[in-house]
């Protein structure tokens, strides 16, 4: 399966990229996608995550073609 991983705002600057493609032979959870994309760095507790633009939990299982996004607390309005 192939998934796209996106990073936003301060997290994009920390990770050093806005987007990466991941290939995996077995289904990944959101937390596993973070580990693969970020060289096994632990997932910080304040990071928010979405799959196909809906908020999810780290245990959510990804499907082929999904877009998973990681971002810091939001500050709009």
């Amino acid at each position: 399966m192939t998934v796209t991983v996106k990073f936003f705002a301060s997290l994009r600057e920390k990770v050093g990229t806005g987007s990466v493609q991941l290939n995996a032979s077995t289904p990944l959870t959101v937390a596993q996608a973070w580990s693969q994309a970020c060289n096994e760095t632990p997932l910080p507790s304040h990071v928010l995550m979405a799959v196909n633009m809906e908020y999810v939990e780290p245990t959510t299982v990804l499907h082929d073609g999904d877009e998973v996004a990681f971002f810091p607390p939001v500050t709009g309005g």
């Binding site: 936003f8 705002a9 979405a50 908020y55 971002f71 939001v74 500050t75 709009g76």
Partner: peptide, 14 residues
């Protein structure tokens, strides 16, 4: 609406 927007809508101020 404004509280949901402030807490959950994906915007970031730089």
């Amino acid at each position: 609406l404004i509280e949901e927007l402030k807490h959950n809508a994906p915007f970031w101020k730089h």
